[in-house]
Structures are given as C-alpha cells and as structure tokens.
Design a protein around this nucleic acid. Structure first.
Length: 559
RNA sequence: GCGCCUGUAGCUCAGUUGGACAGAGCAACGGACUUCUAAUCCGUAGGUCGCAGGUUCGAAUCCUGCCAGGCGUGCCA
C-alpha cells in the first residue's frame, strides 16, 4: 500500500470514528455515513488534506455544515494518524495539517522499490487486452496510426504497472474489399512497371510506396506473371505485398518502441468458419433478418441509427461481421476487459459493436472503445494537408526522422484522446525551453550529473541511517509530496485509460525538481544533509525514469 | 436532419466522483549564472469557463435549449 493511501485511510477511519461517537453522544442525528472524500486541496493554505464530510451531513443532521464540522472535530482523535492540527474553513470543510515525517518514509520506500516504484496491484491480475493501430496493411503508417500507437502502448504500459495481465494486439485487415483494391492497385503498378499502358484504378492506393513494392517484386519474379491469369497474378502480388507491408509496419512500430504480443489475421476468421458460426448464433437468437438479398443485424435495438448489413447480397460477409467474430474470439480467449483504440471517424461503429456483444450474451461494459480525435500537423505555422487516397501524407517513420522518437511519443500522449491534436513539428524538434519533453528529460540528466560527481567524490553510497528530518526547505517537502503521488497517478491514469495524466504529472515533478535544484545544493555541504538530499535526488531519479519508461521516452544521463 | 466529440488566458491545453478566490506551458514584461548542466529558476500581467436558462449549501463539471467547429450517417473499412 502506498504512503498517501495509508495516510488517507488513517484519517478517514478517524473521521468515521469521530462521527459515530458524536452520534452516540446524541450530538449528530444521522442514520448512515455518506461516501465522503478526503482530498488534497488546491490551495496549500488549506492544509495537506481536506474533507467535505460535514457538508454532506448537513441535510440529514439538520444542522449548519460548520456546526457539524465543529462537532466532528471535537470527537476527532489524532492518535494513530499523522494529523498535527485540524481546522474548520470555508463553507464547512475540515482541513488537516500533517506532521511532515510521513513524507520521509516515502523517500525510503522509493529507494527500496526502485524500478517497481509506482506499480500497484489494483488490477489484481485481471486479463485485459489492448488492441490498437490495426492499420490496413495496404500502405504506410500515418499520423493517426502514430497517435494510436503512442496512446495504445502507454495505456498498455499503465495497465501493466497497475497490476493487470496485459496483452497487446494488432488486428490485420487482410481480407475484404480493401484487399481487392490493393490487388487491383498492385496489378496496375506491375503492368505499368513492365511497360504496359494500363489505367490506375480510381479507388486504388495511389501511394508511391506501392511502386517500390512492385519493383522489389519484379526483382524477385521478373515478368513471370505478365502472361499469367489475372487472378493468379493478383494473388502472387498480394501475398508478396502483404508480407512486405506487414514486416515494414512491424519494424516501424518496433522502432517507435511498440511491440505486440499477438498479430491477429482477419482472414483467419473467414478460413476457420468463425464468422459463419457467429452469424448463425445471432440468427438463432433472432437478431438477423433478410432484406434485399442481404442479411441485416438489428443494431437499431442498441442505439444505432439503423440496422447494419452483415452479409452482402453476393454472400460475402462485411467487415462488421468479421469484427463481431473477432470480438467474440477475444472474449473466448478469457479477456475480462477488452479495450480498443479507434479513430474518431469510427465512432459510428461503437454502438453496434457493443450491441452485437450484448446480443450474443456478453457484457458490453467489458468492451471499452477509446476514441481518438484526429491529428493535424503544423509546420511553420501552416497546417499540412493530408490525403491518404492520393498517398500524400507524412508517415510515422518520417516523423521519427524529423522530430525523434521521444518527442513524438511525448507529444501524442500529452493531449487527452478526445481532443484534437495539433502537432507542431517545429516545437517538437526545437531543442529549447519551449519543448516540454526536454524539460522533463533535463531534470533527469541534471540528477545524473549530481550523482556522477558524488561518485567521483566518493560520497555516493548512502549511510545505513539517513536523517531525512533534515529536509525542511519547502521546495524539498513539495518535491517529496509529488513523488509520493506517483503510484496513485499511475493507478488512476490506468483505470481511466487517460495516459495524458502522465505527461502532466511529469512536467509538475520536473518543475518541482528544478525549483529544488536552484534552492538547495546537494554536494559539498554538511555530510548528514548531503546524505538526505542525495537520497531524495535518487528517489526523484527513480520516479522520473519509471515515469518516462511508461510513456516510452528515454531518460538520458546527459544532455 | 439525426448521432458522437470539442468550445476554458493572445496561442496550445489541464481541470480525476460537483467543492473553497478557475490552473499550467508557450508568447509578453521585469529580474537571477565566481559554486552540483541557465535546455533552469523567481516575479508581473492576462479569463463574462461559447450563449441562455435550470438542479443545490455549492456548477467549468450534472440537466434542457441555442450558437460555432470537427467527425460520422455505404451491401467501404
């Protein structure tokens, strides 16, 4: 259990005891205690913690909140808590001021836990799956995919740190219409490359990368497929290109720091009969009907605007049908929490997907879709227009070349998923104060520099007993307080699936360190104080590096 | 038309289950380097929380209506 939680629980217990005593004494007319909060006030003057208990009791006890607060504090016993003093303030808050000693135990905790500091077991080993990116293997990864990669991977890291059993998965759309278009595009490029004047399909993939794919195909097979049957030619091209595209995607994501546990093929759902099976199940439960020669799922029962086709009149299942089978497969594999990251342009798909799960007897609440809004790229103050259809877009590998992996990952995680992301290329690559990534990394580098010099001076080993009571400067205490919050920040961000809380916390922690750094010297001071500060600085280093690892950003030793 | 997301300081955005005078970074202005990295720190200034109602001890947060922007509304994925 982390220190903050421990301290909070002690105060809450003491509050409950106080309220019950007041009730027994007949001073409070209540039958039950509300779910009150003990929170950290925004204003430092309001103490270390504050509770709204008295205000929540006002109605039932038929007394003014401040009066109730008086009664509760009269019966409040400080023994067994860190509370030094308490006061009644504002409309009826009870504010608590704590003895700073509890903070010093945090430093020892961090030094003991090292790279495990921040981890918790709130997930209780529950099996959770995060599916993200899942870009069509017909082209290169664009900015939307990049944001998905950074967010998805960080969410998975967070869940892992919060004690879930996490699996990362990539769904390969290697079936359906887009593969057909892919085949036609490849064939056209192939024939063009061999000197034939054939038109390029309107709905095809116009990207230059396909020309290169076909060139390497020709290097391998020459004009062997020029005379071949069109179907045979397309099959050979698609097989080759899918493989090439997928290994490329896998490599780029790996370079971005993202590695998957499972790559799941859509085609396998067609081949295994899983789609047919799940359609039959829906049909027998009465959720399917036929209209205009096609089979429809009654998604309008689940808040969808209208019903959705699952099997086209030509007998071919739609993407939606495959997706239903895919999600059934996920639940069959025993995942208790299934998380998907989708672009906001797929939001229309959410209601029917959850509806299909409900129709099949699964709990739709166990399927959670995180929607991310679109990314806009800015350079020189101008927005870069992008179009996937014409193949004109900035790819993930280009972005990494341009701004580096650290800045890219940090920037994508910085904003909450449901806000539009304006990605400023100039800012991301600027090596200056404006760049938030460097601000955080710099704090880590500064600490490493201190520790290097401590080592050279032969003072890096902390004595067995360090007297942290010597840390009394406000900048020291605030810094420790922030370090103490880390486990809760991680657990909270994990459960809410909100990785952007990490970057926010990162800049706060780094900021407090930089203030401490200007206020307090660490080296060449009195030995006992130096030991205490070295301990603190090491604890901050551990916290920063654990934090940056979650975001997928490096913690440099020098800058 | 309908559905989802967004609207908070000049700009980019936080604001966790409703809590005390609404926060940060950048930009602007003024300061701080003979001592552990100035990619830093300290300070000043800046807001009718899109608009109008409602719910309550209390609303940026919940409800209703309206306005603006994005996305969706395919037998595409």
């Amino acid at each position: 259990m982390n220190r903050v939680k421990l301290v909070q629980r002690q105060i809450k217990d003491a509050l409950i005891t106080a309220a019950l005593k007041a009730q027994e004494a007949g001073e409070l007319q209540i039958t039950s205690l509300p779910d009150f909060v003990l929170e950290v006030p925004r204003e430092k003057q309001h103490g270390d913690f504050a509770t709204n208990l008295a205000m929540l009791l006002a109605k039932e006890a038929k007394k003014a909140p401040r009066q109730i607060a008086e009664i509760i504090s009269k019966y409040f016993s400080k023994t067994g808590t860190w509370v030094e003093s308490l006061e009644i303030a504002g409309p009826g808050f009870i504010n608590f001021r704590l003895d700073n000693s509890w903070l010093f135990e945090v430093v020892s905790d961090v030094l003991k836990e090292k790279h495990n500091y921040g981890r918790s077991d709130v997930g209780k080993g529950k099996k959770v799956q995060v599916e993200f990116v899942s870009a069509n293997p017909t082209g290169l990864l664009h900015m939307g995919n990049a944001r998905g990669a950074a967010l998805g991977d960080t969410i998975a890291n967070l869940l892992d740190a919060a004690g879930f059993d996490v699996s990362r998965e990539y769904y390969i759309n290697d079936a359906g219409n887009q593969i057909h278009n892919f085949a036609l595009s490849l064939e056209a490029r192939y024939l063009q490359a061999l000197g034939m004047d054939v038109p390029f399909p309107e709905e095809g993939y116009h990207g230059e990368d396909l020309v290169e794919t076909v060139e390497s195909f020709i290097k391998l097979h020459g004009d062997k497929y020029l005379q071949a049957d069109s179907q045979e030619r397309q099959d050979a091209l698609v097989k080759y290109a899918l493989n090439e595209k997928l290994s490329h995607i896998r490599q780029v994501l790996h370079d971005f720091g993202v590695d998957y546990d499972v790559w799941f093929s859509e085609q396998s759902l067609h081949d295994s009969g899983a789609i047919k099976k799940v359609m039959a199940a829906l049909q027998s439960r009465g959720y399917i009907y036929e209209k205009d020669g096609a089979l429809w799922f009654k998604s309008s029962l689940y808040g969808d605007e209208k019903d959705e086709v699952v099997v086209r009149s030509n007998g071919v299942p739609t993407y939606f049908a495959a997706d239903i089978a895919y999600h059934v497969n996920k639940f069959e594999r025993g995942f208790e929490w299934v998380i998907n990251l989708w672009g906001a342009d797929h939001h229309g798909h959410v209601a029917r997907m959850k509806g299909a799960m409900e129709a099949l007897g699964y709990n739709p609440d166990q399927l959670q879709i995180v929607l991310m809004q679109l990314v806009r790229l800015f350079s020189g103050g101008e927005m870069l227009r992008m179009s996937k259809r014409t193949g004109q877009y900035v790819t993930l590998s280009e972005l990494m070349e341009e701004v580096g992996r650290d800045a890219a990952r940090y920037f994508f995680v910085m904003r909450s998923a449901d806000s539009h992301l304006d990605f400023d290329l100039d800012l991301a690559k600027s090596e200056s104060a404006e760049n938030p990534v460097y601000y955080v990394q710099y704090a880590h580098a500064r600490i490493c520099s201190i520790l290097r010099q401590a080592k050279e001076a032969g003072v890096s080993e902390l004595p067995v007993q360090v007297n942290y009571q010597l840390l009394t400067d406000p900048s020291e205490l605030e810094l420790i307080r922030k370090v103490a919050d880390f486990p809760d920040v991680v657990a909270g961000a994990a459960l809410a699936l909100e990785p952007h809380r990490l970057t926010r916390y990162a800049s706060e922690l780094a900021g407090l360190f930089h203030s401490f750094y200007t206020n307090c010297r660490v080296l060449n001071i009195e030995a006992d104080l130096m030991a205490a500060r070295l301990g603190l600085v090491q604890a901050v280093k551990i916290t920063l590096s654990n934090l940056l690892r979650l975001i997928g950003v490096t913690a440099p030793e020098r800058m």
